[in-house]
Design a binder for these strands. Structure first.
Lengths: 208, 208, 208, 208
DNA sequence: CATGAATGAGTCTTCATTCAT
DNA sequence: GATGAATGAAGACTCATTCAT
């Protein structure tokens, strides 16, 4: 692991655990094993670090979502988005927590950029839901509310998931798919196939 | 409004908007219309302010949840919890955002107290779900996961609800009840009655 | 002397002696007898301090020059400007050194303001010179060059004048008037009357 | 241009524009097109750079002044000094600005050396003035004041001269000679001959 | 010859808090 | 009750300089 990566990792852990404003430059330095002056060889400002983390996380998410958007079957498509969201929020827990909680710490310009990425991502969900409604596979009077509810529900896992828990991640994802389809009054869906497929996609986009 | 309430209100707004660490004592003073020295006549430390906000919010929530826990019918009970959670997160938006986001800013001792209150509240949900499963009104293999998913889903509204939006709060709550019951594969439920009842309860516990 | 004035005085002395960039906040604090945190009760930023010093000095200078501009006789008028410039640069040595040397330390916005004040002042000189040329009392082919040369010559005194020197300030001023008129090939001028008059004006505008 | 010269040039430009304390090592590195570590192959400390610039400028000036000091005719001699001072301050603008403004940035030891050089230079002026007074070609009661005034007046050109201005440098120098002789109540002097002579001298001492 | 890495001391400024008045 | 004054510690960040490679 390069020093730059160690700095990034330290930022990731601390921003996730204490928040951007709760993390001092010295905390970062200690956590990366550097003096606080040396830190500045490997980063721009503290905010740059935050932006980089968010940008990368959202960019990858969007790349995956774009691939999923090609799925024809409406139920499959939503199930895949659920699997993607749940699995990344479980496994990329730190990144997603930072993305979800620290937006307000951004100054106007980077905030604009990051918000755009997030809106892009949410658009994939909105389209998937509306598409399913149009095909009469989903039933809801308020697709916008459903989108928000789904995203919150599926993203929440980043706050509690642990690989040491009693349920396997696959099982959890299957539950979430089940709940999500239930929320939209769609037909239940076996799901394991979807999970496998998305797991492959994730492995491709978040290598190693 | 007493000066103390003004201070509390200022803290509420700023902690919700910028986070605990993102809010300075001077910001509070300006927002409350006081000098920062005077502020200390009406509060203890900055953290005390945070604890007080969280404690009050969770205590009231628990009081309401305890009343709802008396409801016999399992579907009614869950629907009421959903209504309570959604409505408070919509209307007491600032308080709930602070409770949900700033826990990590607490130092160990107060954190323990607040976590206990939150666990208490979550227990009402866990019991309601398990009770419904036992009565075969809900169907899920992972009630714990369902609880977490439900809470995240219903609480997320604090991040986007505005009274000026296109949907009335009642409508939104009905949607959430519908989605929640769908998630648990329960029978759909008309719901408006439940909404009215919980609205009354809320009016009683959060007076005015 | 109020604390605020002590801070101002410290800034004046240090900026004059070491320059803006050569003066640290700690130097200011030590010199004012305060901790560097306390310093910030009495000032904005370090630059604010610089701007305030410059603004006041130039504003007063302009007020005095405006009064002198009413003088009808061309030679009198120029002699008075010389007396004003020399005397202030001798007695308000620190202020004028700061004004003359630290302009480049200003950031764009305040620089604009201060430059405007300085241009205003130089305009009084330009008019006085051109007026004398028009009346055929002064003889020069390049009034602009003369203005610049006069200002530099008369302002340079701030770099070496000391009240303990062998010549009285009045004598020095008389010499300067003599040299200035010589430069412009004007009739020599007794001058003491002018010096007295300007001394009165200065006492009025820089009270005490 | 060797790398060392590029470093020197960068220092010259930056010290002149922003002052010694306003110029960082990194600024120098960027301006010289080197990394800040490489910079140290071509220089000692930042202060060494400043001293070298000052020393060279003053040494050359003294060499030229020494040659001029051989001039017999008092008026010629002063006119040549004026021409030398004005022309170098116009053409070697950056060097002379640094010499005139950054003396205070020197630490005691180098300051002593540089001050000695400057005093040496001023002595040529003092002698020229006193010589002219003794010969009754100049008339002033305070030759010391006249020297200071002359030097400030003639040196000020470094703050505003540009080869793109409306007047040729020769014309400006002629004006300055005229003003200088006027200040000393000497006979006017045609001057162009003097200018040409000094221009030759300068070309010899500041080659290229 | 060149530089990435490193740093202790420094930069200006703000922090939460106390206290005498 | 209210506040101006005060501060040690900390905030993010830059400084001039060294050195191993």
């Amino acid at each position: 692991m390069t020093t730059e990566q160690r700095v990034r990792q330290a930022a990731l852990e601390l921003f996730a655990a204490r928040g951007f404003h709760g993390t001092g430059i010295r905390d970062l330095a200690v956590s990366a094993g550097l003096s606080s002056a040396t830190l500045y060889h490997y980063m721009g400002t503290k905010e740059d670090l935050l932006v980089a983390i968010m940008r990368e996380s959202l960019t990858r998410l969007n790349r995956a979502a774009a691939r999923i958007a090609e799925t024809e079957d409406a139920q499959d498509r939503l199930a895949k988005l659920v699997a993607l969201h749940v699995m990344t929020h479980a496994v990329q827990q730190l990144e997603t927590r930072v993305v979800d909680n620290e937006m307000r710490a951004l100054s106007p310009q980077p905030r604009k950029e990051i918000l755009k990425l997030r809106d892009e991502y949410e658009a994939f969900w909105q389209q998937a839901i509306e598409n399913g409604c149009a095909q009469r596979r989903f039933h809801t009077n308020a697709p916008g509310v459903a989108r928000l509810a789904l995203l919150e529900m599926c993203g929440g896992i980043s706050r509690w998931y642990s690989p040491d828990g009693p349920l396997s991640l696959d099982d959890i994802v299957l539950h979430y798919i089940d709940m999500a389809l239930g929320m939209l009054h769609a037909q239940p869906e076996p799901g394991q196939r979807v999970v496998n497929e998305v797991a492959g996609l994730i492995a491709e986009i978040w290598p190693q």
